[in-house]
Design a protein around this nucleic acid. Structure first.
Lengths: 258, 258
DNA sequence: TGCTAAATCTCGAAC
DNA sequence: GTTCGAGGTTTAGCA
């Protein structure tokens, strides 16, 4: 049990030791960090070759593999979780093969120098929460329709129409049908076209006028132009304010409960 | 110089030592790996909170930050390259702040236990090559137009039309204008609609018939149906074969040169 | 299983 | 600087 948790670190291990420690770790579903000089081949949906250099390699307990260079957010090579790992020695080099089926993809890493190798099991039950998603904005608008405009009354949400799903569907204070398209970030032309498609479909279906409102924290200049030319409206809605609305309503729910 | 390259590892460092080593590393643009118990706040385009647990944190020399949990390909929290880093002690905890402007985003990591901390500089000049990209396919088709069909003659590529850029533009053996849309993977409805937009624009512009060919390794069932209903063609083109064509042509170039 | 839409997408190129 | 498109995108939600 203690061994599971303990972090075992090897500085400058020789190839044989590295092979043993790695296969041990792969069998015991322990995570691994390797820093060393390596080159990497990938074959699958595409193919790639990474010429020799020092990199950080992480193998996680679920089989995910990441090869990181000295810069940038993205790994240069990787393998998602669920791949089968194997380490062996070949011509005085450490070889690690990570194989995945569906799609069939293989990442092969060759090390001629291992500066550092560490194996361990992470104890991690902490919850992760992300706030102010597009879904949060939708919920907030449904709970607090004045975020769109005074007198707006939602009737439905995620309403199925031919081209997709309408985020929020309702009537304005004059009784006109309103379609609301929500974007969590600056809305581009794409968002306007999406809204326009819904409007056109509904106009044909219902045989009456339909208003379109694009709800987003901001809108790009060309999108605004397109929006105007199509006779649609824009309503600035702040995702963070939506989070606050949700939080407030949640609190009220709890207050009402007691 | 040697110190730069050497990997320096501290097992179970106390908070003060960790703070010193980290700020040293941030100043000297050395990369850092930390394994320890931490919680993380993020505020920026969205907001998030990660409750305590053991994680792997990487800080790269360009300021990129990655917080990895025990499973999966993606970091749970991160910061792209170019952010400003700072480590300090607060109430017996190690705090690392990673701040980026444009957009303004802050990731704050709190550690109450550091299992190990390692700092180093990666020597990495190795080239990375990805084969069989969409660009490779385009090049291959331009070099070997029969990949599309016999008698096809390319005239232009990346041709600007109102909705975007036409991958390859040419004439078929009957002299009809042909627009080729290339996809490196199974083409979906989206690809067909893209091609259709180009075709329609060109038809209006030129006032004559225009053929459309979707070139991809495969096409989804619904995309094929849409394609047929629009009177467009599909041509199966294998990305790997394109790579081979390119390689062959490159070889020929070298042969011709000598 | 396959498709669609979103992502704190990232990254690079073009305007 | 902004915008646009591609990515071995990945990931999550559904039909």
């Amino acid at each position: 049990m203690f061994k599971d948790r303990r972090i075992v670190t090897y500085e400058n291990p020789d190839i044989d030791e590295a092979v043993n420690r790695l296969n041990e770790a792969f069998n015991e579903k322990r995570a691994v960090i390797i820093v060393g000089n390596c080159w990497v081949d990938y074959h699958g949906r595409a193919s790639s070759r990474l010429e020799p250099g020092e990199r950080i390699v992480i193998v996680k307990e679920d089989g995910a593999v990441l090869v990181h260079r000295s810069r940038g957010y993205e790994p240069v090579n990787w393998q998602p979780s669920g791949c089968i790992l194997q380490a062996f020695k070949e011509e005085d080099k450490l070889v690690i093969k990570a194989v995945k089926r569906i799609p069939h993809e293989v990442v092969t890493m060759f090390f001629n120098k291992i500066h550092f190798l560490s194996t361990f099991r992470l104890m991690d039950e902490g919850e992760f929460s992300l706030y102010a998603s597009e879904e949060d904005m939708q919920k907030a608008i449904l709970m607090e329709p004045s975020l769109i405009e005074d007198g707006f009354k939602p009737i439905d949400y995620e309403k199925r129409v031919k081209p997709g799903f309408i985020d929020v569907y309702g009537v304005d204070k004059s009784g006109r049908i309103v379609v609301v398209e929500i974007k969590r970030r600056t809305a581009g032309r794409e968002a306007v076209l999406q809204l326009a498609k819904y409007i056109e479909t509904l106009r044909r279906e219902l045989g009456r006028e339909v208003r379109g409102i694009l709800a987003a924290p901001d809108i790009s200049k060309d999108a605004r132009q397109l929006l105007l030319s199509l006779g649609l409206d824009f309503k600035r809605v702040d995702p963070k304010k939506c989070s606050e609305v949700l939080r407030r309503k949640e609190e009220r729910k709890i207050v009402d409960f007691f």
